[in-house]
Structures are given as C-alpha cells and as structure tokens.
Design a protein around this nucleic acid. Structure first.
Length: 565
RNA sequence: CGGAGUGUAGCGCAGUCUGGUAGCGCACCUGGUUUGGGACCAGGGGGUCGAAGGUUCGAGUCCUUUCACUCCGACCA
C-alpha cells in the first residue's frame, strides 16, 4: 500500500497517559487511539495487526477441529440469573434496559450464551464432542482499566467452549487445547509459559494460564529453575518448608510481651526464627448474603495468599477488618492467637502448621503471648504464598518469581453451567445428563500490546513475523527524483507479485523523517531507494539489529529471498 | 471504592500563586527553496481555557458544585 494514502498519524510526542512502552509505541505509531477510560479505536495499521493475530488463532483452532460462531454481544440478563452469576459477577457486568424495560448485559464472557445455544440444538451423545468458539468483543466494566490494550474495558477475546459426554473426553479436549494454544503463542513469537492457575469467577476445577513473560506483568508467577513446573502465585505450591534452626524448647506458658505486636519484635525478644511463630491474619469474608470474620493462621515466616484464603472459605471476597471490628468479637489486634480463642470464630490453619510444636502465639489478651504451644488440629488448608527459594514438589529444584501477562486461560468446567442451565443430552442408554464442559479463552486485543511489550525498543515497535503489518517498507528517499521514484515502484510491483505485503513510503518528506517513521512502525525490513541507485544499488535495513546492506537492483528479488524471513 | 494528580488548539505544554487583549513547540494550510537521519523562508487557519453556578467594572486565573481522564492499591483475557 502507499503510505501517502494510508491514515497513519505518527507522533514525535510521548502520550502523557501511557506507561507501558508497548502502549507508547502503539499510540506514537498511529496504531491505536484512546477514546475513553479503557476504550480504544484501532486505526488502519492496528486493525491490520489485529487481523493477522486473529488469523493465526483461527488457523490453529480450526485445525484442532473447533468451529467458529458469533454470539450476540448484547445478552439477556435472564440467562445470567439462571446460572447464578448475575449476582456474583457484580458491577463489572454492564447492565441496561431496552425500551420495553427488558434487562440486558454486555457480555463479559459467554458461557451462558453458548450453553443456551447448544442446549437448544444438541440432544444426543452422537453429536458430541463439540468445540465452539468466537472471536468477539467483550465488555467488562473494570474497576480500574490500565496499561492501554492490556486492560481495556472493551476488548477482543477468543472464547471457546467444548461439550462432552463424559469427563475423560473433556480432559482429552483440554489437553488438545493446551497444545493448540501453545502452537498459537509460539507462532505469534511470544515468550510464554503455561502455569497452573486459580479458576476465579469462571468456576470449575482444573485450570491453566498461558502467561507472556514480561516485567510489566500484573501476575506473579512461581516457576521452577530445574523442571517446567510453573504456577500463578494464586495457585502455586511448594514442598513443605523445613527450618534448619532448632525449635525453641519451652514449656507451655504465658509470657508478658508489652506492646510487642509484630513478628519482628517478637523475634527480637525471643531470639527465635519466625518459622516458630504463629501469624494470624484477620479478614472479613463476604458471601452472597452474609459476612463473617475469619482468622488465617500461618507460620510467622510466611505470607497469606489471598486468593487461596478466599477459596478456603468459599467466600466471594476477603476484605480488611478494622481494629474496632475485631474488638467487637473480642479479638485484640497484635495479640491474636490460637489459644483461648472463642470457638465461634472461624480459623483456618495453613498446611505448614500440621502438628507444629513449640510454637509462639498470641494469647488473645493484650500484652501476652504463649510459648511452647503444640498444635493439635485436624484440618489444614493451603493458604500460604509460595516464597522464592522454596523447593519444587516435582523435582526439588529451587522456585523463583517472575512476572507475566495472562494471554490465555483454559478451564475444566465440568457441569458448572450445564447443570443449572439444564443443558442436557441423552446418553447411549437414553438417560438425560448435563454436558461436561471445558472453556478456553485468549485475550486477542491484549496480544497486540503483549507482542510489543516483549519486542519493542526505544525507537518504537518491532513486530514478530506473524504479527507485522507489512513484510517490507520501501523508502523512497526523494520522491521528486524520478529515477528513484520509478525504481521504487517497480520494486513495489515485483515484491507484491512475489507475495510480500509491502508499504511504500511515497510521501514528499525528507529522508530523516521517513526513516524515523519506519523505525517507529516496527516493520522488520526496509528497502531504501536513494542516491545509491547511481551504482544500481538499494539498501536493505533490518529493524531488529539495525544492520544495513547494499544490494544490486538487478538481482534484488533473489537476494531478498534468503534475507527476509 | 480509598489515596494522589491532571483537564488551556489535533498532540505535548506554559499562563492560574499576584484577575486586565489566550500563548509556545510540534502537527496542519498556501507559496517558494530543500531532499540519506525528524529542513528552511514568508504568509495563514484553528480555542465555548472540561461543565455549571457565583464574586467582580472585568475570570483561564478567585469561590462553590459537578464531570472526565491518568497514576498507586483491591478485580481479570
């Protein structure tokens, strides 16, 4: 295409509201335009990149046997009431009414809609399995949109849903989707890792996330340095920690600890490793229609993992508790412990506290702690955050943290939606059963940003092979020079005939501003048609490594074959 | 929602403290020169100063209310 005819509003200025380098590149390069909080327009170049990404996704999914559909973006609220998510999803769900006063939502994800589609059209086990997907707009009224396309309110997601007659077949499809997603992200040139994850609001049992490794990621990942174990910190596990220091032998006794409320202060006083302290974290658990204060007990050397904690009590959410609220139920902030605890108060113990001996804990009385506490508890749960340096449960290797951006998430749903929505089929014995389901998502519009987050530099974007808007950028140094102009357009024609997508910069600007735009746009190769044509040569510039090479015009098409990937 | 901040030309900003003709750079338009690292000369267009109300002879500037957006925390592809 001719640059002079395309809308590519590049800018020298750094947009004042962009923090991610990818976002800066996208705005400066004229790929996207901000329109409101979490809302973006895609300009021609952005749209081309998006379509290229979509094509890769569609190719691989179709290859894996999935079928593309397109569901209505506006969906009846009644479906959400049927599944019970109308309440649970909260304010993120944008609700509105039509002129007849019927309630609708803008779909943030489409489990209900897809189940509704299938329950009306599939009645027999003979029609299964089925994997349906769409690449469509979603809307989530995020509490805080940020990072440009990475967390918009309106965004493009590929969401797929599979339907099976039994658990085994669903697990087979889950594995197939894991492999398919890996192919997709590999083709797109993304540095990613598959990790174990929490299922969150979608529900279901097993789930895995595809995480693009990035310093600007919002998620903390626990990864093993030795094997391929990786998990979101919300779901990460590690081998039980052992403390090299001896436990402080002490008889059970109450100890006067005036104003010593923190683990650090107690460590100073008792000269004991925090491993032998019991840390109590108080939270208020919110449920659909009530709330309660819950205590979470951990070793002093550990931190509470909130998602695990939320799941451990099946709460919708955990919020902080004020000192006053604690007092109303007889708890003293800073001196909470497991001894003399009112048995009306729920307490959850971390796995690491099973059979713990010689522990120090608060006395539930101001200025006192107990020492020499031996725990006798029956039930423990995993509520601690894995720490860097913990040992991998698979290979014993050392675990460390890294940051990631979630680009895909696959879930084993089971009958979480099919049962309440009464989506059933007849099995080979003529018996009605709910579909066993899986669900699979990819953050498509987010990928535009993620790719650049991993590959742009100070000069601007650098696209990967499958995402680049054009293969080659022909730069005419001086369009007033007829010879340059003619040679460039001859090249343009020939390269297009060979199947390359080409952007020819035919603007009447100087060399400097054009090459800056080439670097900003992130097209990997430029052919500069300039004063070297006097020697029958043009210059090939590689955006990735800035290398330059003079090529003979006579043999240029042949030369490019081996130089352009 | 809690905390911090910003709204002045398409973009980036100054002007606000101390009220007195609305500015700068980039971009844009016209003519000319220029053409290998964001050119130059001359001329030009573009603003309800986020909105509403108030104080004042006079408000971008002071007061009140309100809206939007950004950043830091709790939600998620």
């Amino acid at each position: 295409m001719r640059y002079s005819q395309l809308l590519i509003p590049t800018s020298k200025e750094i947009p004042n509201d962009a923090v991610l380098s990818s976002h800066i590149s996208l705005v400066r390069g004229g790929f996207i335009q901000h329109v409101g909080s979490g809302l973006y327009n895609l300009l021609p170049l952005g749209k081309i990149v998006l379509e290229k990404i979509k094509k890769v996704i569609k190719d691989e999914l179709d290859e894996a046997g999935a079928q593309e559909v397109s569901l209505s973006f506006v969906t009846p609220l009644s479906l959400w009431e049927e599944s019970g998510r109308a309440e649970k999803y909260g304010k993120e769900l944008l609700r509105f009414k039509d002129r007849k006063d019927n309630s609708f939502v803008l779909g943030p994800t489409h489990e209900e809609m897809m189940v509704n589609l299938v329950r009306g059209s599939v009645k027999s086990y003979k029609s299964l399995p089925l994997n349906l997907y769409q690449i469509n707009t979603k809307f989530r009224d995020e509490i805080r949109p940020r990072f440009g396309l990475v967390r918009g309110r309106e965004f493009l997601m590929k969401d797929g849903y599979s339907f099976h007659a039994n658990e085994e077949d669903m697990l087979r499809e889950f594995a197939l989707m894991e492999a398919t997603y890996s192919k997709i992200f590999t083709r797109l040139g993304i540095d990613f890792r598959v990790v174990e994850a929490d299922s969150g609001a979608i529900g279901g049992s097993g789930s895995k996330e595809f995480m693009a490794i990035s310093q600007s990621g919002e998620d903390t990942l626990v990864v093993c340095k030795e094997c391929d174990y990786g998990a979101n910190i919300e779901a990460g596990v590690s081998a039980l920690e052992v403390c090299e220091e001896e436990a402080p032998e002490a008889d059970f006794a109450q100890f006067y600890t005036p104003n010593l409320t923190s683990i650090e202060e107690l460590v100073d006083l008792f000269k004991v490793n925090p491993y032998y302290m019991i840390k109590i974290v108080a939270k208020k658990a919110l449920y659909d229609d009530n709330e309660e204060i819950v205590l979470f007990a951990l070793r002093g050397s550990d931190e509470l993992e909130e998602t695990k904690a939320t799941n451990s009590v099946n709460a919708n959410e955990l919020v902080d508790v004020s000192v006053q609220e604690l007092e109303t139920v007889g708890l003293v902030a800073g001196f909470m412990g497991v001894i003399n605890l009112d048995d009306k108060i729920k307490i959850i113990y971390d796995n690491s506290l099973l059979n713990a001996k010689n522990m120090i804990t608060g006395a539930n009385k101001r200025d006192y702690h107990f020492v020499g506490v031996n725990l006798e508890i029956n039930e423990t749960k995993d509520i601690r955050a894995v720490k860097e340096g913990d040992k991998c449960i698979h290979c014993g290797g050392e675990l460390s943290y890294t940051k990631g951006i979630e680009v895909g998430h696959i879930f084993q749903l089971g009958t979480r939606y099919s049962a309440p929505l009464k989506a059933e089929f007849l099995d080979e014995f003529g018996k009605a059963k709910p579909f066993v389901m899986g669900t699979y998502g990819i953050g498509v519009s987010r990928l535009i940003s993620v790719i650049l987050e991993q590959s742009s530099n100070l000069k601007g974007a650098i696209w990967t092979k499958q995402s680049r808007p054009f293969d080659i950028y022909i730069l005419i140094s001086n369009v007033k020079n007829k010879e340059q102009y003619d040679v460039a357009f001859e090249l343009y024609k020939n390269l297009k005939a060979l199947g390359y997508s080409v952007l020819i910069d035919d603007r009447n600007d100087r060399f400097g501003s054009k090459i800056k735009d080439f670097e900003l746009l992130g097209i990997p190769y430029s052919l500069v048609v300039g004063n070297k044509i006097e020697d029958k040569k043009v210059e090939l510039i590689n955006r990735l490594n800035d290398s330059k090479e003079l090529l003979e015009i006579e043999t240029i098409l042949e030369s490019l074959k081996s130089r352009i990937e």
